Simulated scan of single mutants.
Amino acid sequence: MLERLEAEAFLTLAEELHFGHTAERLHVTTGRVSQIIKKLERRIGAPLFERTNRSVRLTPTGHRFYEDLRPAYEQIQAALARAVDSARPTLSVLRVGFVGAAAGQVAHQARDLFPEREPGWRVHIREVQLVDALARLREDDVDILILHLPVSGADMVVGPVVISEPRMLAIPADHPLAGRTSVSMEDITGVPLLRVAGVKPGDWLSDRWPDRTPQGRPIPEGPEIETFLEALQVIGSGIGATVVGAQVTRFYIRPDIAYVPLSDAPPLDWAPVWLKSNNTAAIRAFAHTTLEVAQRIYLAATR
């Protein structure tokens, strides 16, 4: 009998060909991935991967196992999603979480539109905080989240990008960089970047506080925070900075904080995300509704 974690570990490693990346996607340790694969290889009686200090690749046996297992695994996931759909014929409440004001605007307008698209459903909206947003989803406290990317994980479905905005640096208003028309990542080498408590490298949000500039110059580590409003309070007091989206200039104007465009940073994208184990028709329909609403908001803003 093949256990779910064994299947997920093998399929993910076959795609990533990297134990560390596989461990990050599955939210386990690298040692745990190695232990699972060795146990699976003992059961099969042959190596599934060739490992060296520099690379990981499938053996012929591993390649055949992947070709056989992937379709079967996808069928099981689809069957599970259909079973969830059929087990909830009378469910009428969709629980939607959001992070940040722009995502909240999209969520609330989608809530008003959704019953027209899916009669019999109503939507309950709640704000979630940076420190526990994904935990709220995984603990079944919300069904779908609207938050900023990137989000990775073998258990996640990422919906359409509904907001794409320039990145900015939120910095104390009296900082020397505050008067600039723009800054580059190289300019922030002396600026401590705030980080969310408990977030490890590779986790959601960790891209917001790189430890080095693109040219390799160190960026100091700033204080830990748990919510965005707490981050603003810390920055407003003159301590540290954080990378934000341009929506802050509409929703979070403060006299003690300056928002300076980052000239060489990629856009910050926002999307609805949900669990593969809860991939229902209603959730997919709501994700489509958020895209429709976001497009309307953008058109209204540009007129």
Score class of each variant (00 low, 15 high):
214 P>K: 01
295 Q>L: 13
7 A>G: 09
92 S>A: 08
84 V>N: 00
58 L>Y: 08
128 V>H: 05
262 L>M: 12
187 D>L: 07
60 P>C: 08
220 P>D: 12
298 Y>A: 15
38 K>M: 10
262 L>I: 10
215 Q>R: 09
194 L>T: 00
148 H>C: 11
67 E>L: 14
72 A>W: 09
207 D>F: 12
2 L>W: 15
173 A>N: 05
241 A>V: 02
174 D>C: 01
147 L>N: 01
96 V>E: 13
295 Q>P: 04
73 Y>R: 14
262 L>E: 07
169 L>H: 01
168 M>D: 03
38 K>F: 07
273 V>A: 15
208 R>K: 03
229 L>A: 14
153 G>C: 11
92 S>V: 00
261 P>H: 12
75 Q>T: 06
224 E>K: 01
283 I>L: 15
255 P>Y: 01
238 G>A: 03
143 D>V: 00
251 F>V: 02
54 R>T: 13
263 S>H: 02
188 I>R: 06
207 D>C: 11
30 T>C: 00
288 H>Y: 06
177 L>S: 08
100 G>N: 12
98 F>N: 12
26 L>H: 04
67 E>I: 10
251 F>G: 04
72 A>C: 06
261 P>N: 04
174 D>L: 05
297 I>K: 11
47 P>L: 06
229 L>C: 09
43 R>M: 02
186 E>M: 06
112 D>F: 04
248 V>Q: 10
49 F>R: 04
181 T>L: 12
49 F>N: 04
276 K>H: 10
235 I>L: 12
279 N>L: 03
118 E>Q: 06
295 Q>V: 01
42 R>I: 00
89 P>K: 13
147 L>I: 02
210 P>I: 06
177 L>F: 03
161 V>Q: 04
25 R>T: 01
30 T>Y: 07
188 I>A: 12
295 Q>N: 14
228 F>Q: 15
210 P>R: 07
55 S>F: 14
268 L>S: 04
223 P>L: 14
168 M>Q: 09
44 I>H: 09
89 P>G: 10
298 Y>H: 13
151 V>Y: 15
186 E>N: 10
99 V>Q: 12
161 V>D: 09
44 I>W: 14
